[in-house]
Design a protein around this nucleic acid. Structure first.
Lengths: 116, 116
DNA sequence: ATACTATGTCGTATTTTAACGTCATAGGGA
DNA sequence: TCCCTATGACGTTAAAATACGACATAGTAT
């Protein structure tokens, strides 16, 4: 990928893209949904419910953790992964604003300026 | 990337991940915002407003077009790119449901089962 | 008809993801 | 103590994304 020119975009665009990238894999979407559905959540359980190797799941967990979307607390031999709901609410708001602006735009058609 | 095991996830998870991937680059976020802000929209103008080469922008346009998030109609020497607002509204709904479920989950803390 | 302009296509080098196997570490129980 | 188990770290391979230059094409205007 590389994102060499990333610096030239606005902070909002970069932040939205970062989160979107975090959700850009079905495994990570599934992980978030899984954590949302369970109040208690152990790393091993997550790997067991996904069709991926344990280490691959761990890699996805690390990516989500890098963005602080999820948190992991070591509890003896197991680790409790949890959603960062506070951050998720902020992110939700960002996506909401983005889609509001995008869908508010007049669809291309006979009434549009370009007419296409 | 590869997504070899993609088939093992639900259609919803795959669809969400696909759209998220489309928005996983600041250039594509910027493109959608640009198209939303203008009622008329030409390919060349888009490249001019982004810090990327024309061909790179074209590539991003193609990716958005592959998901049908945007449409392009040839009009003589120029091309009118437009948002597919109908599809965007559907996508917005999917993201909304996803975030609703994620943020509704009780944050990890003293009241949670895991206690972390 | 010719030159100019604006778009699209191709090829490619570099970087990043994805997926997994193997090894390391550390807590708990026999 | 010794072993088992569960997690994390490392290394590697294959596939995909990113970015761009060079070329092709087609419409417009002089």
């Amino acid at each position: 990928m590389s994102f060499a020119k990333t610096a030239a975009f606005t902070a909002e665009q970069q932040q939205l893209a970062r989160v979107a990238k975090a959700l850009a894999h079905p495994a990570r979407v599934a992980i978030v949904q899984l954590l949302a559905s369970k109040t208690t959540c152990i790393s091993g359980d997550i790997a067991a419910e996904l069709p991926l190797a344990r280490t691959t799941v761990f890699q996805h967990l690390q990516e989500l953790k890098a963005l602080d979307l999820i948190r992991g607390e070591i509890d003896g031999l197991t680790v409790c992964y949890c959603l960062n709901t506070a951050l998720l609410r902020q992110v939700q708001q960002q996506f909401l604003s983005f889609f509001e602006a995008a869908t508010a735009s007049p669809a291309c058609g006979p009434e549009a300026a370009c007419g296409c």
